[in-house]
Design a protein around this nucleic acid. Structure first.
Lengths: 111, 111
DNA sequence: AAATCAATTGAACAATTGTTCAATTATGGA
DNA sequence: TCCATAATTGAACAATTGTTCAATTGATTT
């Protein structure tokens, strides 16, 4: 962007995905970047839950949970379906739990 | 946290990691939550690079890159080593690229 | 020693984020 | 219909974030 930067090497093509795709990636991964949302995702790993149940378990107001669930829905980390008066939320697919699992491994294996 | 929330079920134990551990998880995953940082991680997937090279490839100022590399270092997504005047950066381990790979899969399989 | 290139840092600023509170929508039961 | 429960929404606010700019540190060469 600005400097010289003597690269001895032949300036190999970077082979990056297009910015558009990277933006999608960022959108998705951004959803994992908050303490409350991670907590919500972890409890959803166990079983489907309603917002009011999540609220009790993670210790957040129902409103705060609803706001976070909206983020998780919009970025496709969770699915949901209505059943009577309630709405049940679940992890969207195995990618989501795979990322949680890998990340947990990473922070657990440390000096 | 606040309401009643009639759970018909026997209030199964949540079985969550301690908040401390979740905080570590969040710290780690937060580092994936920015467009520029993801771009940096993606180019580091190909090979070790110096900040000035990264700057040219991703189109950010050297300063901005350095600031982001500090974040990535602090949260242990990248390693680095000095060689003469330069400092080379690389992904910390396979967990990091595994997460990128899984996330890329997730955004690629669209419905 | 000075000069040069590379990398890091700190302050400042706009932009974004997560929560609370209050109001609103949705569903089912009396 | 009205009421109770569940969920969502919007505005507001403090807190955090990412970038730029300028200054500084580090390592090598002459």
């Amino acid at each position: 962007m600005e400097g010289n930067c003597d690269t001895g090497k032949p300036d190999q093509p970077p082979n990056l995905p297009p910015d558009e795709k990277i933006a999608e990636l960022a959108e998705f991964l951004e959803a994992f970047s908050d303490f409350s949302r991670i907590k919500i995702l972890l409890v959803l790993q166990e079983r489907e839950l309603r917002p009011c149940e999540i609220s009790k378990i993670v210790g957040l107001s129902v409103s705060a949970v609803a706001h976070q669930l909206r983020v998780l829905r919009d970025k496709r980390l969770v699915r949901y379906f209505r059943e009577g008066k309630s709405v049940y939320y679940a992890l969207d697919d195995e990618h989501v739990s795979a990322i949680l699992k890998t990340a947990l491994e990473h922070v657990n294996e440390r000096r």
